[in-house]
Design a binder for these strands. Structure first.
Lengths: 201, 201
DNA sequence: ATTCATTATTGAGTTTGCTCAGTTTTAGGA
DNA sequence: TCCTAAAACTGAGCAAACTCAATAATGAAT
């Protein structure tokens, strides 16, 4: 055996396994109980690592949530991009991107809110945070793509509009004001605002 | 003496004085060191009350910041409203409301970010939070006022646009991405987005 | 003035995210 | 195989927001 040319020793393999156990533990516990109801100790226990070890793999509990939730966010974006490409109406296409994102951040509403909060307010130097920001950028790029189908909209204007749409989406998903609404109602609130932005264009 | 008809006994007076001491202590310490660098113990000490007493007057450290910062926010809004009323151009008028708000939340950037974060993510049942939300509503109303000067914009559209502008303002002030910008640059970023929203209207 | 129910205050104690000094494990050279 | 430096791991301990059982102050009724 061991015909593996890659420099992967026991050490590297162990690290990888630990990261996987931690990720799995955090994913399960967060989605079952919500991020606020889970202690880092519980995660460490289930991952079978020391309490301190956790923080070698993610610098904070928030980073741990980013690590876990980025996967779901990325999936939602992918679905949205695919859906949008098949829709000609601009507003409908934009909302096809928005919808899965709203949904994915409201499956466990506390987690979604905390995730987005961390994305805006957390430390952007941390690796999982960076990945989350990259995903956000990808969403804006998708908005720009749709907006640019209309050649009357300049690149600069499309970029500004995409930013504004992102801001509206963020607030509509996270604000406590909208906590009681259904996913569809939140999407409706966003659609209304985006619709007005596009009016006469 | 004591020709005061109001039912204000020693008890009520003491409570009022304590609240004032706490408010003063929090205001001074927060603005001098930033909310994250101040402990509730320090505030209690300077206000000359027990550590537990603090939480009878504000349910959390965040509520304490809301209590303190609401005053500055209200002042900024007032100035903005006054300035906007003397400006005919719609975009300029909107930005006259935005500018003081951006400024006031960037005097001590950490406090401004935490304040706005708490406004969106905190417990809206708490009294000082409610007041903050009322101030936010007042800002949106001011936006609506300006937008409604153009009778081609329906009431519903004005309300939707006002919400969107608020969202853009929130993100532009708080996002870590813009941390390095000057106040003027942040205002510029907002102006660009609001300008595009209003284009062709 | 005395009693006493109500309200306000207190600070020691709890919880929990996170740190760090000490220990164990690994890889590779002699 | 043994030695050693570097890397990884650990859990006791720290800090700080917040709680709560015990205590004190208040004011109305007698």
């Amino acid at each position: 055996m061991q015909h593996d040319a890659a420099p992967i020793g026991r050490r590297e393999r162990n690290k990888q396994q630990k990261l996987e156990r931690i990720t799995a533990a955090a994913t399960e516990l967060f989605s079952e109980h919500g991020v606020d109801e889970v202690t880092t100790q519980q995660i460490a226990d289930r991952a079978d690592v020391g309490a301190g070890t956790l923080f070698l793999y993610a610098k904070s509990k928030a980073e741990l949530l980013l690590l876990v939730h980025n996967v779901k966010f990325a999936d939602a974006i992918e679905r949205g991009e695919a859906a949008a490409s098949g829709i000609t109406d601009r507003l409908d296409a934009l909302m096809a991107i928005v919808s899965p994102i709203v949904e994915c951040n409201r499956v466990q509403i506390e987690n979604g809110r905390t995730y987005l909060r961390e994305l805006v307010f957390g430390d952007p130097e941390e690796p999982h945070h960076r990945e989350g920001l990259a995903l956000s950028a990808r969403v804006e790029a998708a908005f720009v793509d749709v907006l640019q189908r209309d050649e009357r909209i300049s690149a600069a204007d499309a970029a500004a509009l995409a930013r504004a749409i992102s801001a509206v989406m963020f607030i509509s998903i996270t604000a406590t004001l909208y906590r009681g609404l259904t996913d569809e109602e939140v999407v409706g609130v966003i659609r209304e605002q985006v619709g007005v932005m596009l009016a006469h264009r």
